[in-house]
Design a protein around this nucleic acid. Structure first.
Lengths: 192, 192
DNA sequence: GTCTATAAATAGATAGAC
DNA sequence: GTCTATCTATTTATAGAC
């Protein structure tokens, strides 16, 4: 329970989080994380038993960050519409990262879908968290098919990130975000 | 120009194509391709100078396959609407593969976006081919914003594949395909 | 808790016999 | 053209000194 140790553990997680996003999980080595943190390779095994364990800690860290982000969206306004619009704005606030490396949730999940099924299941938790929160917002709008709308919105955003990253096209993000927000407002106005 | 050599070259490309799709490019080793083909590792270097060269040949192979697929779509009907609907049906005809490994174009591009920029550029060619073909179909419908519609349709399809693969959800593919085809028909009916 | 040295396995790539 | 043997670098992971 040393303070020093926890600090190193956190630094490893933060560096791995960035590297897994920018280079991918499989393409990130212990040496990469070591160079990013200054912590020797051999020391990692004091904090994590395997590389998969680091991934697990990184995903848990991302779940915490996503939860905090969703809280921010809830603070953005009193109505579900305000919250959904705030959520969709992640496309614009994270624009530069999206253009360079895609969506951290989507690209990690796509990568791990081709690896071990257990790793894929772990990474899917991030999508599940977003899906559940979106579902609650659409339910608050009185929608009967809230889960379907949540999936539709997630899919729209994922599609935009994949194409925007592929073509490095910032204008496509801006234009698509407007379309998506129009779509959200349309759902907020219509009945059930 | 030996017949035997070309046969081996093709077998390597076909096996690598499948493995790059099912496991990812970086996670596929020469040993994997060797085991899949029965051709010894060292022999690969008679046909390809580097692993990247194999990737280049695989992408060229996929471009040929995509071109043939688009020809099929053109044969599906005389109107642009028929062709666009035929195109969108790839979501259903490739459903099982999509659920297991995502879209071969999208997942490879997302993976290579985190690698060497040159590899990313190479993989983007597949998206460009589809984008150009879709643009031509929307132009044939008299649309002024044909390229934007092409991007929108590609993004919709990509988003569905990412989410369907993440949640292994075949019903989501079926439901989304219907939405996408409604969207296409709506564009075909409206003016410019 | 921290770090060095190193093990064990695998990667991409080469050399050269046949 | 085909194949075996091998090189070099890198990977995850371990052992053990401090």
């Amino acid at each position: 329970m040393g303070t020093k140790g926890d600090g190193n553990r956190r630094r490893i997680i933060e560096a791995a989080d960035q590297l897994f996003y920018k280079r991918g999980y499989n393409q990130t080595s212990f040496q990469d994380i070591s160079e990013a943190t200054g912590i020797p390779r051999g020391n990692f095994y004091y904090y994590f038993k395997t590389k998969d364990d680091i991934l697990g800690a990184v995903i848990d860290n991302r779940l915490d960050a996503l939860t905090a982000m969703l809280k921010q969206c809830e603070a953005a306004g009193g109505t579900p519409l305000d919250r959904l619009l705030a959520f969709s704005n992640i496309l614009e606030t994270n624009r530069d990262n999206v253009l360079e490396s895609g969506c951290p949730v989507g690209t990690l999940d796509s990568e791990l879908a081709k690896d071990d099924p257990q790793l894929h299941e772990k990474s899917r938790q991030a999508f599940s968290l977003l899906r559940q929160w979106l579902r609650e917002q659409f339910e608050a709008l009185g929608k009967a098919n809230a889960d379907e709308l949540a999936m539709d919105l997630l899919a729209r955003i994922q599609g935009v990130t994949v194409l925007a990253c592929a073509f490095n096209d910032a204008d496509f993000i801006r234009r698509s975000l407007k379309d998506i927000q129009d779509w959200i407002e349309c759902r907020a106005m219509n009945q059930a």
